[in-house]
Every structure is written in structure tokens, then in C-alpha cells.
């Protein structure tokens, strides 16, 4: 499967996922995305920047001190939920998602973790 096909399968399985994007956090680039709504490149760039900020100090340092390096983050706001996962094998690889509040978050996180590791492994 291609990266886009992997992302498309997630969006199809979870209609509450408005946007699912694969990014290289080190170069701040969204490499592929699938969405249930119209998104611009500016939207994707902003999402990538939010993911980088989430995995930044000072909260990143607190997490490392408390329980080790975080590979997952969520941002909850009134307009939705963002979920960011970093690959454990390739830490620059990340999935960036914008979801509705009604999403089954437990199932969704498990699904995108599996998807991210498949993409990072090139399978």
C-alpha cells in the first residue's frame, strides 16, 4: 500500500477523523494527507507546526523526566481534537490528525499507531 492508501483507509474507517496527514517533523513537511474536508497547504503547515510545538519544551522535558520520551500527544480544544503520533523507530515520522470530539479515541489511536509503524517500515 502507498502512504496515501494507508491514510485513506484510516479516514474511511473513522469518518470523525477530518484530516490524517503523514509528516516529517524534522523538515516541517507534510508528505501526504487524506481528509474528509477541504484543507489547504496552509492548514497542513499549521498542523505540522502544532505537532512540533506539542513535542517541545517545557512539557516535553517534564514528560521525559517523569516517564521517558513521549511518542504521542493530544491537543483538545473547543473545535476538535488533534492527535499526533511519532514513530518509535523513525522519530521524525509522524501522523497528524484532526478529529471530531465524538471519535472513539482509544480505537483511533491504536489504529493510527499501527498505520504509522507500517508506513515507517515501508510495508
Amino acid at each position: 500500500m502507498t502512504v496515501s492508501e494507508h491514510l485513506g483507509a484510516v479516514v474511511k474507517a473513522y469518518p470523525q477523523a477530518r484530516v490524517v496527514a503523514f509528516a516529517d517533523l524534522s523538515s516541517r513537511m507534510v508528505l501526504a494527507s487524506q481528509a474528509n474536508q477541504a484543507v489547504t497547504q496552509e492548514n497542513l503547515d499549521a498542523l505540522c507546526e502544532q505537532a512540533r510545538t506539542s513535542f517541545d519544551d517545557p512539557l516535553f522535558a517534564l514528560s521525559v523526566e517523569a516517564f521517558g520520551e513521549p511518542h504521542a500527544a493530544m491537543v483538545l480544544a473547543l473545535d476538535g481534537v488533534q492527535v499526533f503520533l511519532r514513530s518509535e523507530s523513525e522519530p521524525a515520522d509522524a501522523l497528524l490528525c484532526i478529529c471530531d470530539h465524538s471519535i472513539d479515541l482509544a480505537g483511533f489511536v491504536a489504529r493510527i499507531r499501527q498505520t504509522l509503524e507500517k508506513i515507517s517500515a515501508g510495508t
Binding site: T53, S54, L59, S63, F67, E69, L76, A77, D79
Partner: peptide
């Protein structure tokens, strides 16, 4: 950090960081 992740400056916002979240 909260300012930068918040799309709605005046609204409530929450960041969660975890090894896996689950």
C-alpha cells in the same frame, strides 16, 4: 506552548503528552 497550539486564543485548550497515551 499553550498559546502556540491553541487555534482559539481565548478558549480552553489542553495538551497531553505520553509514551503511548494508552
Amino acid at each position: 506552548q499553550l498559546d502556540m497550539v491553541s487555534m482559539v486564543p481565548a478558549g480552553p485548550v489542553c495538551i497531553v503528552l505520553g509514551a503511548t497515551l494508552v
